[in-house]
Measured scan of single mutants.
Amino acid sequence: LQAFIKTLTGKTFTVEMEPSDTIENLKAKIQDKEGIPPDQQRLIFAGKQLEDGRTLSDYNIQKESTLHLVL
């Protein structure tokens, strides 16, 4: 599935991932794409901060969901 990552500066980019991917995997993909170390990334979806060990499906993240990236 493709999801949108929106930063506080208003920049939006897309990442490809599977519902079974962990938040940790997602942070690694963001690092590959944007060069931001995972330990500096905080991802917010539906008002909740996402925990590394959980999966996208745990948070009911669907295709074309928008996640907010806070540094």
Rank of each mutant, 00 (worst) to 15 (best):
N60P: 04
S57N: 10
N60I: 09
L69M: 07
I23N: 00
P37N: 06
T14M: 13
P19Q: 09
T66K: 06
R54T: 06
Q31D: 04
T22D: 02
Q62G: 14
Y59Q: 03
H68C: 11
K33T: 09
E51V: 06
T7H: 06
K33M: 14
H68Y: 15
Q2T: 15
T66C: 06
E34D: 04
S65N: 10
E64F: 13
D58N: 03
F4V: 14
Q40G: 05
T55C: 05
R54V: 07
Q49F: 13
R54P: 03
V70A: 07
I23Q: 01
D32N: 11
N25R: 14
A28G: 08
L71E: 07
G47L: 02
N25D: 13
I23P: 01
I36L: 05
R54G: 06
K11G: 07
I23A: 02
N60T: 06
E34H: 12
S20T: 12
K33V: 13
D21Y: 05
G10M: 03
Q62D: 13
K63Y: 10
I30W: 00
Q2G: 05
P19T: 08
K6G: 03
K63I: 08
T55P: 08
K63N: 15
E16Y: 12
T55I: 08
L26C: 01
Q49P: 11
L69Y: 01
K27T: 01
M17A: 09
P38F: 13
Q49W: 13
L67T: 02
Q49E: 15
E18L: 15
G10W: 03
Q41R: 00
I5G: 01
S65K: 08
L1Q: 05
V70D: 06
T9K: 11
I23F: 02
K63L: 08
I5N: 02
Q2R: 14
D52G: 07
N60A: 08
L1V: 11
L8T: 14
L43V: 05
D58E: 11
R42L: 14
Q31L: 10
G53A: 10
T7C: 10
T14P: 05
F13S: 01
T55F: 08
G10E: 03
E64H: 13
I23R: 01
T12S: 10
I44D: 04
H68K: 05
Y59N: 02
